[in-house]
């Protein structure tokens, strides 16, 4: 086998454990933009008590070879402790949170509330003309809910991006 063979794109959820130092996020983002990789979603926050380590979760897409490259490129950054392709290294959980503002009255308002209930979205703010729903779940669940809200007065969305972790006893 020779040069890069055309392959199907796949989505990958990559967790990166990094030293919590200034510029580390810029390094990761600069790597993606400089080498032309996609970022579908990116989250970051400190994950240890002493705040010395942060965890970055990146949802990206590419061929298997590109995703291997992304992992290798991330791994060679000096402040990176560990890189894990959760979507390839066994079952994992991925969740994101969305705050969704729906503005409307009458039947549409009632329908929005009913659907929110079915999706187990919480109402965290309400006026006579609006709701703010809080919904946590996999990305496709959030997408499905937003599709339903669109004709019902969807006005604004704030999403966190994906946080992910392996199932079972496996750790990064």
């Amino acid at each position: 086998m020779n040069a890069i063979v055309e392959q199907h794109l796949r989505s990958a959820t990559i967790s990166v454990l990094v030293e919590n130092e200034s510029g580390v996020l810029a390094r990761v983002i600069g790597l993606f933009s400089g080498r032309g990789y996609n970022i579908d979603s990116l989250t970051v926050a400190p994950v240890e008590d002493d705040r010395r380590k942060s965890r970055i979760t990146i949802v990206t897409s590419g061929t298997d070879l590109v995703i291997e490259q992304i992992k290798a490129q991330l791994d060679r950054l000096v402040p990176v402790y560990r890189v894990s392709d959760l979507s390839r290294e066994g079952p994992h959980l991925a969740r994101e949170l969305a705050l969704i503002k729906v503005i409307g009255a009458g039947d549409k308002r009632l329908e929005a509330l009913r659907l929110a209930d079915a999706f187990r979205a919480r109402v965290i703010d309400a006026t006579t003309e609006s709701f703010v729903f809080e919904l946590t779940g996999a990305t496709d669940k959030l997408d499905a809910f937003l599709d339903l809200m669109r004709p019902l007065g969807l006005a604004e969305v704030s999403r966190t991006g994906v946080a992910a972790i392996a199932r079972g006893t496996r750790t990064i």
Partner: peptide, 8 residues
């Protein structure tokens, strides 16, 4: 990162 970058 130099492995499988341009050539498999």
């Amino acid at each position: 990162s130099n492995i499988n970058k341009n050539i498999v």
